[in-house]
């Protein structure tokens, strides 16, 4: 495993831990989109169908379990925990799941490497992950005022995506036959979705002011 991939996985892990920590310690999910969290839970559930059939490494299995466990517990907290539930900004989090899930499912049925259940589900998860952040970005735009933890959560997620692109470039040049168009194009789309947010995040950090997004 190369350094970009490891750093990418670690920033992904940090983003999830930042979010769980926020929810668990201050019992608040203000500014967090439940829609995005449910989409991530679906992404991991459909991608890791191979968790008990294909063993890659202990690292791989443990990380998969962490991502599955954390994404489902975040959804549980936001839906079921009395205090956390109360801080959920339901009125602004109105993005419709179906608008993302259905097109991704259709695309996965049309464009995939192998027509098997596991492979189509895996491809679906790749497409869905690329757009799953959209409800979160829409919510941030609507509320405009972003607390530090929410900003850091999205920042680390974006860092994870950027590092994965470097990892793919590295693997392309160092490993024979390493060509994955589906993953690359989806990953690129996903990273571009963060570009706007990154711009405001970094400029607010540079000017040392609280992060706000334009309407």
């Amino acid at each position: 495993m190369n350094a970009f991939r490891l750093a990418g996985d670690m920033t992904h892990l940090i983003s999830v831990l930042v979010l769980l920590l926020k929810i668990h310690t201050i019992k608040s999910c203000a500014g967090i989109s439940l829609k995005t969290q449910e989409l991530y839970a679906l992404v991991f559930a459909t991608r890791y169908l191979d968790i008990f059939t294909d063993f890659i490494s202990l690292y791989n299995t443990v990380m998969k379990l962490i991502f599955l466990g954390s994404s489902f517990s975040i959804v549980w907290y936001m839906r079921r925990h009395k205090l956390v539930q109360r801080s959920y900004d339901k009125d602004h989090d109105t993005f419709r799941h179906q608008l993302l899930v259905l097109p991704c499912l259709i695309l996965a049925l049309l464009i995939h490497e192998q027509f098997t259940f596991k492979e189509v589900m895996w491809t679906f998860s790749i497409y869905l992950e690329a757009v799953a952040i959209l409800p979160q970005l829409v919510l941030l735009q609507r509320t405009r005022n972003i607390d530090n933890l929410t900003g850091q959560y999205v920042f680390f997620l974006g860092a994870y995506r950027s590092l994965y692109i470097l990892n793919w470039i590295y693997r392309y040049f160092t490993e024979p036959h390493y060509v994955h168009w589906i993953t690359w194009i989806s990953g690129l789309v996903q990273t571009l979705l963060y570009a706007d947010f990154f711009y405001y995040y970094i400029s607010s950090w540079k000017n040392n002011v609280k992060l706000t997004l334009p309407a």
């Binding site: 991939r5 191979d50 294909d54 063993f55 890659i56 990380m63 991502f67 994965y164 990892n167 993953t183």
Partner: peptide, 10 residues
């Protein structure tokens, strides 16, 4: 194409 290997990323 080894599927397990190509799906080794998270």
């Amino acid at each position: 194409l080894d599927k397990a290997k190509s799906h080794d990323e998270l």
